[in-house]
Simulated assay, not measured.
Amino acid sequence: MMNRRKFLASGIAAGLSAPLLSLPAWADTGAPRLLTATDVHVSDYPTVEAVRWIGQTLERETQGRLKIRLYHSGQLGREAEAIDMARYGAIDMTRVYAGALNNAFPLTQALCLPYVFDSVAHMRRAMDSDISDVVLQSFQRRGLVGLAIYDSGARCFYNARKPIQRPGDLHGMKIRVPGSDIFIDLLRDLGANPTPLSLGETFSGMETHMIDGAENNLRSFHSSRHFEAARYWSESEHSYAPDILLISQKSLEALVPDDRALLLRTARQSVQVMRTLWDASEQVARKAILDYGVQINAVDMPAFRAAAKPLLDQYLAQPDIQSLYRRIRDFA
């Protein structure tokens, strides 16, 4: 299996040693091109399958001239590492969670705020509008191009100790969060002790009692097998923050115009492919965790919304974030 160290040492990543402004020999020639893509999720995860579909479509439409080699299951490292690798051209494409982008790309904060979306349907309506174009275009300031915005479901709390029904139930609990100020501050406001960890470290963190639980979507809860360590799933639905598919601006601009247009178009079309897979796999995941004995409970939603409001108000003091937030709420 390829890992990040082997990858960076291989000829695939040889472009790192060249000046960043230089273009490889295949640039703008129409020569065969192999694009590398990464994802921390497992092989059958909907985002992985969607990128695989993009690769299959590109290969078919270009008679094999344009292909994607996909490294899933975190083979090339964490999301934060993948973002930097794409920015500097060591890889071409990566799918990352929007929360991992908040600090470097502030407009993504509007997508990650607590209770900005009411449901999956609300999120999809908003992301099918030009709101997604505004967010995707913002990546070009730092060497990336946004290709598509994928679903990531409703993020909820899960833990090994007890059902979470009100914010007070989280008091003192150590909860894994992604490395995003929004999620760290939200958990702190809810009375928990936020613990930033990578997805890959979460299972062992619960097993060793370094943390009590985490928050994530149901599909990831299942695919990561966290349900084996945490038997309580509490449907707080505090975030529907999506995933974002990115490509290195250097890699995209090096393609011939027709291939560039094909890639951009195919990436947008992959959103519906991903959604179809997501809906089906989420049903499978819910049945699987119930069969395993996980207890699912509703929460006091007004209490959670009230507890999250100070954080929401803090971010809405930023004009750009407030503007996007209001446009998103128009689709509720």
Rank of each mutant, 00 (worst) to 15 (best):
A13T: 12
L16T: 07
A27H: 04
A31Q: 15
L35E: 10
T36L: 05
T38F: 04
S43G: 11
S43R: 12
D44M: 09
D44R: 14
P46D: 09
Q56C: 07
Q56A: 14
E61L: 15
T62I: 06
R78T: 07
E81D: 02
D84V: 04
Y88N: 08
M93G: 03
M93C: 08
L101D: 06
T108M: 07
Q109S: 13
A110T: 07
L111S: 00
L113P: 03
V116C: 02
D130K: 05
Q137F: 12
Q137D: 15
S138V: 05
G143K: 02
G143H: 11
G143Q: 03
A148I: 04
S152N: 15
S152Q: 09
R155M: 07
F157M: 12
K162H: 14
K162T: 02
Q165M: 03
D169C: 06
I182Y: 00
R188G: 06
T195Y: 08
G200V: 05
E201R: 07
T202F: 00
T202H: 00
I211R: 00
A214R: 01
R225S: 15
F227A: 14
R231K: 13
A241E: 01
I244E: 05
I247K: 03
S251Q: 07
L252F: 02
A254V: 06
A254R: 06
R268P: 13
V273H: 12
M274P: 06
D279Y: 12
S281E: 06
V294R: 05
V299E: 08
D300W: 15
P310V: 05
L316I: 03
L324R: 00
R326C: 06
R329V: 15
F331A: 08
